[in-house]
Amino acid sequence: MSRVTCRDAMGRAIRRALLEDDRVFLMGEDVGRYGGCFGVSKGLYDEFGPERIRDTPLSESAFVGAGIGAAIAGMRPIVEIMTCNFSLLALDQILNNAATLRHMSGGQIGVPLVIRMTTGGGRQLAAQHSHSLEGWYAHIPGLTVLTPATVEDFAGMLGPALADPDPVLIFEHGGLYNVDAELPDEDPAVDINKAAVRRAGQDISLLTYGGSLPKCMAAADELAASGIEAEVIDLRVLRPLDDEAIVTTVSRTHRAVVVDEGWRSGGIGAEISARIMEQAFWELDAPVARVATAEVPLPYPKHLEDAALPSVPAIVGAAKELLGRG
């Protein structure tokens, strides 16, 4: 047991994967000598060398596609993209190839590739380094979309992702890298198909993932001070969504707030809300509420960025309103 940050938990998971499986290698911009844009792969270059900790040119489409090709031909690549905004330069490869080749080839070709990227705002990085596009990617059949929010999940999601025969995208919220917690020395066993109940409650459900989880936990504390017991569901995987967990919590609390750092329109929150309507309509005592990012590219000034992103007061406010206590 030791105190570990989310950053180091992911670094440790990558190291373990490299030790356990010769087919695994890490590839991306500045993953090697630099130690990773966010320091996740620090030290791995010295330990494993340039073949397995492979620095790439700034050619997102080429190195993501190369990861796809290498995965097809028997390797287990981990491709790191600095931020999900940059992943748009490789969107052709991710959608038209990684997500599509199994189908288009009639099942002959699988792409067992893991793509990791940072996501999310809150660090004053303005409008080209701060967005949350995991909801977009969750739209695409053929992909699995993971959003670790705890140290345990940063440590434990990579293993099952690498074991998956199909492409898995891991969205690491930049605001979580410094969050720390006690972690056992052995890898935690994580089921990447299931949501997790992070706090039990019976009055209202807060459904969230990734960087919004700490905000929902703080909101639940505040609500508890007002005598409202919120259940916090960490979705953990946005595709496939854990419908059962969603229906179970809504059936218990009869009220739901979906908290999502993506933009509201057409976002993953809309999908979750629709599924609640489809599968648990008669359980609801109030319409599903959403707390999402304002419909604006993220601004640089802190006060404006804070106002744009989901916040603890906004979550508390939305919850109280659903309970008629707004």
Partner: peptide, 25 residues
């Protein structure tokens, strides 16, 4: 035969990756 690709240029990164895997192995 690894496709049959409909996006112009989209097959090149796949070819690079196939060759990378062959080299690594």
């Amino acid at each position: 035969l690894y496709g049959g690709h409909g996006i112009v240029g989209g097959g090149l990164p796949i070819a690079v990756g196939l060759a990378l895997a062959d080299k690594l192995q």
